[in-house]
Amino acid sequence: MTEPDAPARADELAALARVVRDGVGRLNWRMRAESGAPSPGPMVLAVLSRLYRGGTHTPGELAEAERIHPQSLTRVLASLTSRELITRTPDPSDGRRSLIDITAAGKALLREYSVRREQWLATAMDRALSPTEQQLLRLAADLMARVAEV
């Protein structure tokens, strides 16, 4: 790539980013609206999902993984603990820290919410997309997941 092409490439990527952000945002909004029940909230879903996928975390690890301030996480963890969606146990290697785990009730809440959203999305994809378009969407979803991990 030559130097004069760099600004054009940056503009193309910015335009692509806007289209992807808009599409993801609209789809997320629609899935929340169509799920048929109130959302547990984005931070609750993020914490429960992280614990489900990654297992036990310290509060600091959760805050870093979700890119939020530990102080913001404190209220969420207190709420999840009182609702028995997570457990907090002392870290055997450092009693000043706690270890956070998702409970069976937390897994059930996460799964129930996910299933409702996935059912709506599966029906919408079947109605709106050809098999080829569904395959392209599968590839795009994999790419978006990779970008999210950067």
Rank of each mutant, 00 (worst) to 15 (best):
M125G: 01
A108C: 05
T123Y: 00
R53H: 09
L121A: 12
P40N: 07
V76W: 04
G23T: 06
P59A: 09
H57F: 07
E133H: 12
A128V: 01
E61N: 04
W120R: 00
M43N: 05
L62G: 10
T74M: 10
T87E: 15
L109M: 12
E12D: 10
G36F: 03
D126G: 01
A104C: 02
W120H: 03
A14F: 13
R117Q: 12
D22Q: 15
M43F: 02
L129N: 07
L139H: 01
K107W: 12
D5N: 13
G23W: 06
L80F: 06
Q135S: 05
P92H: 14
Q134G: 09
T132P: 00
R83Q: 09
I102A: 14
D22I: 06
M1Q: 12
A14Q: 14
P131N: 13
D91I: 13
V19S: 15
P4I: 12
Q71G: 00
V19A: 15
T123G: 00
M144F: 04
G36L: 04
R9T: 12
V115N: 01
V147E: 01
L77K: 02
E133R: 13
G54W: 01
R111C: 07
E118K: 02
R117H: 01
I100L: 15
L62A: 08
L45N: 11
R67C: 09
R21A: 15
I86G: 05
I100Y: 11
M144V: 05
S79Y: 08
L137E: 06
L48A: 08
E84S: 08
A10T: 15
R9A: 14
M144G: 01
R127K: 10
G41T: 06
D126V: 04
H69N: 10
A37M: 11
S39G: 07
S35E: 00
Q134P: 02
M125L: 07
Y52M: 05
S82Y: 08
L85W: 08
